[in-house]
Write a protein that binds this DNA or RNA. Structure first.
Lengths: 227, 227
DNA sequence: TTTCGATTACGGCAATAGACGATTGACGCT
DNA sequence: AGCGTCAATCGTCTATTGCCGTAATCGAAA
């Protein structure tokens, strides 16, 4: 990814009618001052200013390369890349229960334990589950950000995600599709009904989708007795 | 797609320790002779030979740009065969239009350009936009995986995501909340109506949500005239 | 108001890029 | 052998880059 960003920036500067302005654009995006950039490159600050002002109509590729590499090196030195900008603040009131199994559990055993009905028979339940998370999906819609999904996944993405308060089951599947990490199993607890689209999305992701009619308390008890 | 290949080649030449060799590599892959390239650029053939031999250690970006554009133009004159072959990413059905701005654009300017109405007045439009993606949201639901979201975001998450085919606007916002990268601006193109939840989700993410009644073609034209 | 840090504008200069033309070499075809 | 095409090498010249230093400007803070 670093090399792709590197190439992207260089390409953009190279192709710009106003390479100086593009250099500035990227420098600002990296939140780097001209002073800092000039120090890093070991040149006078007026050099950077002149480049960005377009004094040089056709900077050489060696110069462009040095500048682009400086952007990346300074960013890495300060540890503030894009992904790390995201807030670490987390809200956990959507997580009803979460547990890592001491011993991995077969998905089929878990489904049996919660008297689950497989809505995606084409999906194998011969998977190993390392843990589960029970999520209040009504709360999750409004209170969970992307980073919170990492909390939901806990230590392993090889887990069962169980959603309570589900009406048609679309929203959880949409969120799962959008997130880079995928669960091993998805369970809807007492949904009003399960939308056909939700089943299709599950199949597209290759994730078994299961329905259970157990109450939340019983569901959690049964899950905690596993592993 | 053409612009991506263009940028790729330029970036590669620019970043190469031996730009001359990289120029030759791409010329050969486009199956263009030095003679043909020199004729197209209106320079002496020895100029091309000198560049490729590395006689110039740091060719200027204007020169690189001319050369790259010559590759593409010559290829296009003969049926774009190489350009098609070397597309970097298959354009998914869901991406109607995508572009990186050469110079960042203010969100407020973009919104004006598409005659947008801000549905989240508490959200500032004083943001810098680096690019946009126009997404067919009906297709996106079933056909886009998490990886494809990275394509949507292109190289900068400081972009405007524009969703067409929106009914209530819930699904796009849910997907955005679930994904680690956040856009700077979300636009719904001619939604049936915008669900209150969608607005709330946008506010929770601190992302301005805008509605536009422009037709897709006009919307894309206006966007492409930016930056 | 003063100070300071950041940025800008510009003169100056050595080194290099951009481009030309002449010459040479390799190859295939007639 | 002669010719055309393609490519390589090199001397040369003009324009521009890469960089310096200096002075001025700007905005924020004291």
């Amino acid at each position: 990814m670093r090399d792709q960003v590197r190439e992207k920036i260089a390409g953009e500067i190279c192709l710009s009618d106003e390479p100086g302005k593009t250099i500035r654009k990227w420098r600002e995006q990296f939140k780097i001052s001209q002073q800092e950039l000039s120090r890093h490159l070991g040149v006078s600050p007026s050099v950077i200013s002149d480049y960005e002002a377009g004094r040089r109509k056709s900077p050489g590729v060696v110069t462009v390369r040095k500048i682009v590499d400086a952007f990346l090196e300074i960013d890495e030195k300060t540890g503030s890349n894009i992904l790390k900008q995201y807030s670490l603040a987390a809200k956990t009131d959507s997580i009803i229960s979460i547990k890592e199994f001491a011993v991995e559990v077969l998905a089929s055993d878990l489904v049996s334990k919660i008297q689950g009905e497989n809505l995606t028979p084409a999906m194998s339940l011969e998977k190993h589950i390392h843990g589960y998370t029970v999520i209040d999906s009504v709360r999750a819609i409004t209170s969970l950000s992307s980073f919170d999904y990492l909390k939901i996944y806990g230590w392993s993405s090889q887990r069962a995600l169980i959603f309570t308060g589900v009406r048609f089951g679309r929203s959880p599947m949409i969120a799962i599709r959008a997130h880079p990490l995928k669960p091993a199993l998805v369970v809807y607890q007492k949904p009003e009904q399960v939308d056909e689209l939700a089943i299709r999305l599950a199949e597209l992701e290759g994730i078994p989708l299961v329905r259970t009619q157990l109450a939340v308390a019983e569901l959690v008890d049964n899950l905690q007795s596993l592993g």
